[in-house]
């Protein structure tokens, strides 16, 4: 059984879609291939990879309530190719969005379902993740916590007392992150199991396990920090800027 997992994010690095695709692949059995679909230059490589695949998993971000525009022409090309062959392929979708509600991925899921109908490909189902962007923040935090634990452990050792304290703190921090992601992890492993069985998963929606008002505060803080890193803050964040030139 061959499964191709496609990261459909346009980002070159630190893509949440790529991370989730990679995480899913840990639980998928048989031959696995991970692909990146950013530009048209990737098309022929990805189309070759999916040509003889039993399962294809599209992992993508939600853009303006739908499939990102750069993926649509690829889907059309895939539809044309699959019509020429006799497809025995299951398509699964993992969609993540920046809002807390996983359910906001519903129009994207339906679009991918229609793509399957028109292409004669079996729709395997999809997982919609709310707060998917936070997965990126959490994996970075996990690495920072690990580095701090190593530093504290070594520093204490050099001073003459090797202690388990830093590792206990790291264990608690890891547990907290796993708790916040427990819905995503559980639904994702379930999806991988259905892929392994080549059975329909249905549509399921999950989220980061935070109350929405706390998530909103976290998201606001994230953008403030991002803005500071990018060179300043509140440079007309809220101003109603008017066009300075004609569009078309």
């Amino acid at each position: 059984m061959k499964t191709v997992l496609i990261d459909c994010s346009p980002k070159k690095k630190l893509s949440a879609s790529g991370f989730i695709a990679g995480f899913t692949s840990l639980f998928v059995m048989g031959e696995k291939k991970k692909e990146k679909l950013r530009t048209k230059a990737d098309w022929s490589r990805v189309l070759d990879a999916v040509a003889d695949a039993d399962n294809v998993v599209f992992s993508m971000p939600l853009y303006v309530d739908g499939v990102p525009s750069h993926i649509l022409p690829f889907l059309k090309e895939m539809e044309l190719r699959r019509r020429e062959n006799s497809p025995d392929m299951n398509v699964y979708v993992i969609a993540n969005n920046g809002f807390i509600e996983g359910k906001q991925n519903e129009p994207l899921m339906q679009t991918m379902e229609h793509f399957c109908e028109r292409s004669g490909i079996r729709w395997g189902g999809g997982l919609g993740i709310g707060g998917g962007v936070m997965m990126n923040v959490m994996r970075i935090m996990l690495l920072v916590y690990l580095a701090l634990a190593v530093f504290r452990f070594v520093a204490a050792g050099i001073l003459g007392s090797w202690q388990a304290g830093p590792w206990i703190v790291f264990g608690k921090q890891t547990a907290a992150i796993l708790l916040l992601c427990c819905g995503i992890i559980a639904f994702d492993i379930w999806l991988a199991c259905r892929i392994n069985q080549r059975k329909e998963y249905g549509k399921h929606y999950t989220r980061i396990m935070l109350p929405s008002f706390v998530f909103i505060l976290c998201a606001d803080l994230f953008f403030i920090i991002l803005s500071v890193i990018q060179g300043g803050i509140f440079r007309g964040w809220f101003s109603r800027k008017k066009p300075t030139r004609m569009t078309n």
Binding site: Y63, V64, G66, V67, P68, S69, H70, L72, P73, L75, K76, F99, P107, Q110, T111, M112, H114, F115, R118, S212, I216, A219, D220, F223, L226, S227, W237, F238
Partner: peptide
């Protein structure tokens, strides 16, 4: 296109998220 916008229109909409701000609400 599969119950959604054509790539050209969707591209335009994807590039227009500056109609909102980075801050969130209900």
């Amino acid at each position: 296109w599969y119950g959604g916008y054509s790539p050209a229109v969707k591209n335009l909409l994807d590039r227009s998220i500056g109609t909102s701000t980075p801050m969130s609400t209900y």
